[in-house]
Each structure stands twice: as structure tokens, then as C-alpha cells.
Design a protein around this nucleic acid. Structure first.
Length: 718
DNA sequence: TGGGTCAGTCTTTTT
DNA sequence: GACTGACCCA
């Protein structure tokens, strides 16, 4: 009967699926059927009696992927998929910590801080320690803490060479102490804490080791050091780690992912050779050729070449727009055309490097009345009204949660202003208590009628909520806290916010808890862990807009890779070191390999960014695609930059550029491509000075922005 | 205390 | 452009 399962697999897939009970590394190219391999292997292991469902530990990259894997398995074999441990690292660690909260030294109902919460916790800490956030930017403190946690390092294990470093370490320790006091745990802490739980607790570790004989990991290229260590710990000497990944699609180094884990796995688990899945079932030939050519430019790859039995397909279309607006309009036109040809909007994606780029697209789409869906930006559980409501819920569950308390203590305004809060914070710091306790004692005092009311409000809500369902509780909180009235009175955006609050009640009604006794905690946990993954879900027929990161693992009939400009894609923060640039290129590789049939590449000669206009030049990634694969669209805009008068010049009327008389520019103008003997190709982006001393600012492809004196710089129109 | 305005800042990607 | 923090005034 296992032949059913294995039917239709190609030889490499079959080899991977039926790999014996030892560790393996599967190098799975984009569109090579890796999800199928992974799920089929689990099904095969169960069907051949090598493991029971409860012995399965599978790690996915997103919660959505975990759900999909469960659904697929349920369709493949008749087992209770609930008994399997399938989830993200964070989800699995959360599960572990909830089950063994005592051993882990956590309160039973510990709450999870998302990045926002963590940041505000850090800001609060800095304030209480009277450290200026100029010297210690909360963001970098956050990075420091998370970076170290992801490397498995506690503050106590760190050493510093200088005063500043020492201070950071102290902050890290103080932050952890604060979290402990408040009963909260950040993302990285979930992992680190469960790692420590297992390594400190032999019996527990053994228990899980003997349970999970087979450990399967998807998107292995995006695991970080701590996750790798966690896997090693669980695998011990005897268990088999079956890791599936693609080093060419490693795009999360910025948050600690180590592609090197792939090589480490080969070494640490004595895997002789990786299994390569190179046959692609997704894209046509030209797209694969482009992807292969592009990724060739990276060094140190494990090596892999995608091929297909499908035909060559169409050429890749390239369009260089005059502006971001023009680019958006071009995309809209093409999407309309595709729709006329019968393509579903939902099978078309517009990808971009950063979320901010969606604005121009959105604008054009609204004008064109095309249905679209944007993934990214603010997620549901990150919206302020939702976070406010959740904060009340958290507070009811655990009043020691200072983060939650401070968020809503004066929201809606109830006469507890900045001054009172300050006093509370001081009292809590001096007394070594939570802010809640400080509020309780201060509420007894004479001046604190509003504080007393707040304390009573929370307690009353807690009492009234007992015995209610989750949805009823959420509804009660929204009403009794005054949030609903507050938004009803507030005209700005109130409709949407109220709708979101109602949506929260619906989400609570639809929530399926694992157990009956911790429903609220589970709900809050899932809100934090799944805050809204930026992954597309099937829905109405609408054009899909998302970042390239969010598109990982997805595929579309047609893909627009937009904003292919130096400084944007590759992003300026990453393009100056080799590693950063290679990650950008992998990102581009991911973008390209999302497309099944048709791929568009586009860039713009001018773009509004951060509220000002920039004149970027075409991304090097466009040039890394072999030109014979490209079809350049728009005849009046050849690959070489045109030297027509740029339309955006009019907009620059307040800019210094205007003070320059035309003659002084020797026939050059802003937006024009030029070459310089030393700096190479660039674009004139600004000008200043008078007729005698004109200086031009030029954005060079290789050397970035430079001011050059027109009298000396020998510039040639390109 | 609370609401308003304004200037200044920082913008890559996210489990 | 969006969000923050600072400042001012009722």
C-alpha cells in the first residue's frame, strides 16, 4: 500500500522519501517538490511502521506551513495528526515550556512579547535605569539582546572590552530580570529557555530523545545557531535529522539565520552527501535559466542547477519606468492584459523589496479599480486597538504584566496622566514591586481616586469574566474597558478600528484551544506567535502584493519583480559588503523562482522614498540575467538611459537645482546617465552653484553618491 | 491632566 | 510619510 504514497515521485524524491533511518540533508531547489517530499516521508515512516505519529517531530518555518503539512498528512494517511509535533521552532518551544513550565522556571501562564512589546519593555527599562536612549538606542539594545539569545548566550556568559559593551551586558541582564519579574518571555527566549530546560534536565531530555526518533526540518537554511543547537540536543547520538533546505534561498541572515548550518549538518551527522532535488516542476525554462545565471554570481554555494521538462516558455519582460508612478501604471496595465487573457488575479503577484513600495502600486490599483490584497505592513494582532484589547486581557490574567498595564492604564483617558504614571513607576522601582502592586497601594491614598477606579475596573472585569466563553470575555473587555466608547467618539479611523475589535471577538469565537483550562492564555499566545504571518492565504480573486520575503514558498502564474534599483534591491544597507549583497541576490533568486509562466522585471528612474525623490540606477541583478532571455518593453525607453528632459524636473522647483542656469550644465540635466573616467556609470541626481561653479551630485553605480565640480569632472553623457 | 501641534527621526526583510 | 517625543495651553 505504500506504493500509493510513492507513486509519481522522481528518483531523487523517492530516494529522499525512503531514506533509511539516518540523518540526511536534502538540497531542494525552488519548485522541486520539497513539501511533498517532506510530508510523504512522514507518511511513509508511519505507514512502514518505523514511527508512531506521536514520534514525529517536524519543524516548519511558518505556522501556516505547519497547518498545511498537517492537512496534507491527514489526507494521505488515516492518523490523528494532532498527536504529531508539527510546528515552528517557536511554536514547539512554547509547547514544551507550557508543559514543563515549573522546570523551566516560568509561571504557568507566561505571556509572549512580540517585537513591539519587547521594544517598549526595553524603553521602559532604559528609563527606569535613567539611561538616555541616545547613548543606548532601544533598537540596538534589542538587537544586542536578541542576537545574543539567538547565539545561545546569556548575559552572564558575555564579556566586554569597553565600558559601553559592559553596559549593554548589564542591560541585557536587567532586561531578563524584568521579564522574569513580569512573567513574560520574548521570541528568542522561547528558544533559549527550552534549550536550557532540556540541557539542564537529563531525564526530560532523554524522554524526548527516545520519543522523537525522527526529526524533520523544513527551510533548514534559515535556522539559526540556537535552533541548530536545539536540534542537536534533541537528536542526541541516535536520532535521525532529516533536513530539507536550499542554501540559495537563505534570506534570513539578518535575523540570525546561518546557512552554515547546512554544512555543519553534513559534518556533525556524518552525512556523506546531500540529496539534490533539481528537477523543477514550477517554472518554464527561461525563468529557470535566469535564476541559475543570477545565482551563479554567488560564491560558496553548495551547488545546484534547476532544470525542467517543461518548455522554454516566454521571454522575461523588462521595463524601465520613468518613475515609480509610471512603473505602477505599467504593472497595472500588464495585469489587466493578463486578466483579459484569462489569468486569475490571485495567480499574479507583485513583489517588492520593502513594504513602503506598495504605496505607489496601491494607488494605481485603486485608480484602475483592480482587486488586490496586500500582505505585510501592519498585521492584525499588531494594530493598536487590538493590542490595547489584548493588553486588558493579559492584565486580567496576570496583573504583574507591567507592559500590558502601562499600555492601558490611561486608555481611554481616565485621569491617570504622565505624572501619576511616573510616580507609580518610581514607587514600583523603589519598592521592588510590579506597577500593579504600586497602583494598588497608591489607590489607598487620598489623591488616587482614579487609580482606585482603574484597579477596581480590572478586578471587576476579571470577576465578571469567570465562567464566560472566550468570545464573551473579549467582548466584555472591549465594552467595560471603555475602548469601544473611546473609538466610537474618536472620528479618525474609528470605523475600521471598531470593525477590527469586532473581528477580534470573531477570532476569539473561532479559536480552537488545545485544552479547556487555559483558553485565554492559549489565545494570547497564538496572537503573539501567529500575529499574522505575512503569508498569503487563499481568498477572493485579487492581485497579490507582498515583499519578496513574504513570497517565499509561494508560486504564481505571473510575477512582477518591481523596484529593481540599486539601493533598493539590492538594498543600500546590504549592498556594501559581500555577504549582504549575496543575501540580496538570493532574495532576487527567490523572487524570480516564484513565477510559473511569466516574469516581469521592472525598475524606475525616479522614486519617492522616505518622502523625497531619488534617482536610482537599474539594479545589477537585471544585468545578471542573460540579455537573450530578456525582452525589453517600451520602445522609447531603451536599456540605455534616455537623455530626454526628465518629467520630474518640474517638481523640483524648490530645489537648489533650479538656481543653475541651463547653459552652465553643459547640456547635462538631472536624471541623465553619465559616465566618469574613474567612477564609471552614474546618474545626475542634483545640482548646485552658479554658472561658474556648477557642482553636480551623481549617483554612481559602483561608488555611490558624489558631488563633482563640473569644471573638472570629465563627464560624458551615457 | 489631556489634547493639540510641531519638529525631528528613521525607515529592509520577520518567526 | 509615519511615528515619536517634546512642548504648550486650557
Amino acid at each position: 500500500m505504500s506504493s500509493d504514497l510513492l507513486a509519481g515521485l522522481n528518483p531523487e524524491q523517492l530516494r529522499a522519501v525512503t531514506w533509511p533511518a539516518k540523518s540526511a540533508l536534502v538540497l531542494a531547489g525552488a519548485g522541486s517538490g520539497k513539501t511533498r517530499v517532506l510530508t510523504t516521508r512522514i507518511a511513509w515512516l508511519i505507514q512502514t511502521g518505523q514511527i508512531s505519529p506521536a514520534g514525529v517531530l517536524a519543524v516548519t518555518f511558518t505556522n501556516k506551513a505547519a497547518r498545511e503539512m498537517q492537512a496534507r498528512l491527514a489526507a494521505m494517511i488515516p492518523v490523528n495528526v494532532k498527536s504529531m509535533w508539527i510546528g515552528t521552532f517557536h511554536g514547539l518551544c512554547n509547547r514544551l515550556l507550557r508543559m514543563h513550565y515549573r522546570d523551566a522556571g516560568l509561571p504557568q501562564t507566561f505571556q509572549i512579547l512580540d517585537m513591539q512589546d519587547q521594544l517598549s519593555a526595553i524603553k521602559r527599562l532604559l528609563k527606569s535605569l535613567e539611561l538616555s536612549d541616545e547613548k543606548f538606542p532601544p533598537r540596538s539594545v534589542q538587537n544586542f539582546i536578541n542576537g545574543n539569545k539567538e547565539a545561545g548566550q546569556r548575559a552572564s556568559a558575555l564579556g566586554a572590552h569597553d565600558f559601553y559593551g559592559q553596559k549593554l551586558i548589564e542591560l541585557y541582564a536587567a532586561y531578563d530580570a524584568q521579564c522574569r519579574r513580569e512573567g513574560v518571555v520574548d521570541f528568542a527566549e522561547l528558544l533559549l529557555r527550552s534549550y536550557e530546560l532540556l540541557s539542564a534536565n537529563q531525564a526530560l531530555c532523554h524522554h524526548y530523545r527516545s520519543r522523537f526518533r525522527f526529526i524533520l526540518v523544513d527551510e533548514f537554511q534559515d535556522t539559526n545557531r540556537l535552533q541548530y543547537a536545539w536540534l542537536r540536543l534533541l537528536a542526541g547520538q541516535d536520532n535521525a535529522v532529516f533536513a530539507v533546505g536550499d542554501d540559495d534561498q537563505s534570506i534570513y541572515a539578518f535575523r540570525g539565520a546561518e546557512v552554515g548550518n547546512m554544512r555543519s549538518l553534513l559534518r556533525d551527522y556524518s552525512v556523506e552527501e546531500a540529496i539534490r532535488l533539481e528537477q523543477n516542476y514550477r517554472s518554464v525554462g527561461t525563468i529557470l535559466k535566469a535564476a541559475n545565471a543570477l545565482i551563479e554570481h554567488n560564491d560558496g554555494r553548495l551547488g545546484k542547477n534547476l532544470w525542467t521538462e517543461a518548455g522554454e516558455g516566454e521571454e522575461i519582460r523588462f521595463y524601465e519606468a520613468s518613475s515609480d508612478v509610471d512603473e505602477a501604471e505599467f504593472i497595472v496595465d500588464e495585469v489587466r492584459g493578463l486578466k483579459r487573457e484569462g489569468m486569475n488575479l490571485a495567480d499574479i503577484a507583485v513583489l517588492y523589496r520593502s513594504n513602503a513600495q506598495s504605496r505607489a502600486l496601491e494607488h494605481a490599483l485603486v485608480n484602475a479599480a483592480l482587486a488586490y490584497r496586500i500582505y505585510g505592513g501592519l498585521r492584525f494582532f499588531e494594530r493598536q486597538e487590538i493590542k490595547h484589547a489584548l493588553a486588558y486581557l493579559r492584565l486580567m490574567d496576570n496583573p504583574e504584566d507591567d507592559n500590558a498595564l502601562l499600555r492601558v492604564i490611561n486608555l481611554p483617558a481616565r485621569g491617570i496622566g504622565a505624572r501619576s504614571v511616573e510616580n507609580l513607576l518610581n514607587a514600583s522601582r523603589d519598592g521592588g514591586t510590579s506597577v500593579w502592586q504600586a497602583a494598588c497601594s497608591a489607590a489607598g491614598g487620598r489623591t488616587a481616586a482614579s487609580l482606585a477606579k482603574f484597579v477596581l475596573l480590572i478586578e471587576a472585569m476579571r470577576e465578571r469574566a469567570s465562567g464566560l466563553t472566550l468570545a464573551e470575555t473579549v467582548s466584555l473587555v472591549i465594552d467595560d474597558s471603555g475602548l469601544r466608547v473611546m473609538y466610537e467618539q474618536d472620528k479618525k479611523e474609528s470605523e475600521e478600528r471598531l470593525a477590527n475589535l469586532d473581528e477580534l471577538i470573531s477570532a476569539a469565537a473561532a479559536f480552537v484551544p488545545e485544552s479547556q483550562d487555559q483558553v485565554l492564555v492559549e489565545f494570547l499566545t497564538s496572537a503573539a506567535l501567529e500575529a499574522g504571518e505575512h503569508q498569503a492565504e487563499a481568498g477572493a480573486d485579487a492581485l497579490q502584493l507582498m515583499t519578496v520575503h513574504a513570497a517565499k514558498g509561494l508560486e504564481f502564474d505571473a510575477v512582477f519583480a518591481s523596484g529593481l534599483e540599486e539601493g533598493l534591491f539590492p538594498h543600500e544597507n546590504s549592498m556594501n559588503d559581500a555577504k549582504g549583497l549575496e543575501e540580496e541576490r538570493r532574495l532576487m533568486y527567490v523572487a524570480v523562482t516564484r513565477a510559473r509562466q511569466r516574469l516581469y522585471l521592472s525598475c524606475a528612474q525616479s522614486r519617492m522614498l522616505h518622502g523625497q525623490t531619488r534617482y536610482p540606477i537599474r539594479s545589477r541583478f537585471v544585468d545578471e540575467v542573460p540579455s537573450e532571455l530578456l525582452r525589453v518593453l517600451s520602445s522609447q525607453k531603451p536599456l540605455v538611459r534616455p537623455s530626454v528632459k526628465a518629467p520630474w524636473l518640474e517638481k523640483k522647483s524648490q530645489q537648489p537645482a533650479v538656481s543653475v542656469v541651463d547653459e552652465s550644465m553643459q547640456g547635462l540635466h538631472i536624471g541623465q546617465s553619465v559616465t566618469h573616467a574613474k567612477f564609471g556609470l552614474g546618474v545626475v541626481v542634483n545640482a548646485e552653484g552658479g554658472a561658474q561653479d556648477t557642482r553636480l551630485q551623481i549617483n554612481f553605480a559602483e561608488h555611490g553618491l558624489k558631488w563633482l565640480d563640473l569644471r573638472y569632472a570629465k563627464l560624458q553623457p551615457a
